[in-house]
């Protein structure tokens, strides 16, 4: 979620401490590393050929339009399924609500960077307890706590109504969101970082343990972006494009055994070494994926 505008002073301070040092040292050290051509990642040619910098900028119009269509499609489905979920909550159908919860969220998790770009929508929809002031806590995870920890829908009608409104607001706002190629590149990495920092640890769905739904959805959202950028990426660095494709396959293959019916097993069922292996496969994918920025013009 996005707090950028709540903490400008903190941001600035951090940049003074870190970015400032980095710049200073970098400029001192250039002579030391220029001309060093060591590959940054095993098995991937992450460093674009020097000539490519002079090539005409790539055209991302089609990729951006297709991504916008994907976002809208996911949002439509998200609103529809959220409505079914909130209806179940409001009519006291506990088991139905539990069954509808995780699948509805997947549509949101696939396009999370977009929601994060839209002000307070992400915390309103997706904040976990402790993420926000208790008085302001609302959205999916508040209902999750009621359904799984307290085994009730009681008292959740208002939260459910608000959640549906927030979902509809998201749908309305995505029409106007300004998507560019840089958002695509950083968005794909952010989706995987989401997995690394909260899904892998089982913190996201701490009551329902449906973390694997979010995990898969984040990965699918990143994969969608990769597929859209792949033609340009293949032109610029075919080996990187191939490596990323292989690592998506490897990660999805690691996830496959945890499918159960139309969904996924409880995260509590995973053994420590299984979690570690998923995390390692995720890191193995995120590393080359973070180099997709090579297609952005300089």
């Amino acid at each position: 979620m996005k707090f950028s505008y709540a903490f400008p002073a903190g941001l600035l301070a951090a940049s003074i401490l870190f970015a400032g040092c980095g710049n200073d040292n970098n400029s001192n050290n250039n002579g030391n590393h220029s001309g060093n051509e060591a590959a940054a990642t095993a098995g991937t040619a992450t460093n674009a050929p020097a000539a490519a910098a002079a090539a005409p900028s790539a055209d991302f119009t089609s990729a951006i339009e297709q991504y916008r269509a994907y976002v809208i499609e996911q949002c439509d489905e998200f609103v529809k399924q959220t409505e079914a979920f909130t209806n179940a909550v409001k009519t006291g159908r506990l088991e139905d609500a539990k069954a509808l919860y995780a699948p509805a969220r997947m549509h949101y998790e696939r396009i999370e960077p977009i929601a994060e770009a839209l002000g307070d929508l992400d915390p309103n929809i997706d904040a976990r307890e402790n993420d926000v002031d208790p008085a302001e806590w609302r959205g999916f995870h508040k209902i999750e706590q009621a359904l799984w920890q307290n085994s009730t829908t009681d008292g959740m009608a208002e939260v459910a109504d608000q959640l549906l409104k927030d979902a509809q607001l998201l749908r309305a706002k995505v029409e106007t969101v300004d998507i560019d190629e840089s958002l695509l590149v950083t968005g794909a990495v952010e989706l995987l970082n989401e997995v690394s920092s909260s899904k892998v640890t089982g913190e996201e769905e701490r009551y329902s343990h449906t973390d694997l739904y979010d995990f898969v959805a984040n990965v699918e959202g990143a994969q969608k972006i990769y597929e859209l950028l792949k033609p340009e990426l293949t032109k610029k660095d075919p080996s990187l494009a191939q490596t990323i494709g292989e690592r998506f396959d490897a990660l999805l293959a690691e996830l496959a055994p945890f499918k159960s019916g139309d969904g996924y097993v409880s995260y509590e069922k995973l053994k420590e070494d299984e979690v570690r292996k998923l995390s390692q496969n995720l890191d193995a994918l995120a590393e080359p994926l973070s180099n997709m920025g090579t297609i952005l013009g300089v």
């Binding site: 590393h33 590959a39 940054a40 992450t46 460093n47 590149v185 180099n291 920025g293």
Partner: peptide
């Protein structure tokens, strides 16, 4: 420094 992508703002 390792590698040659230490000054590219996009990477």
């Amino acid at each position: 420094l390792i590698g040659s992508a230490n000054d590219n703002p996009n990477l």
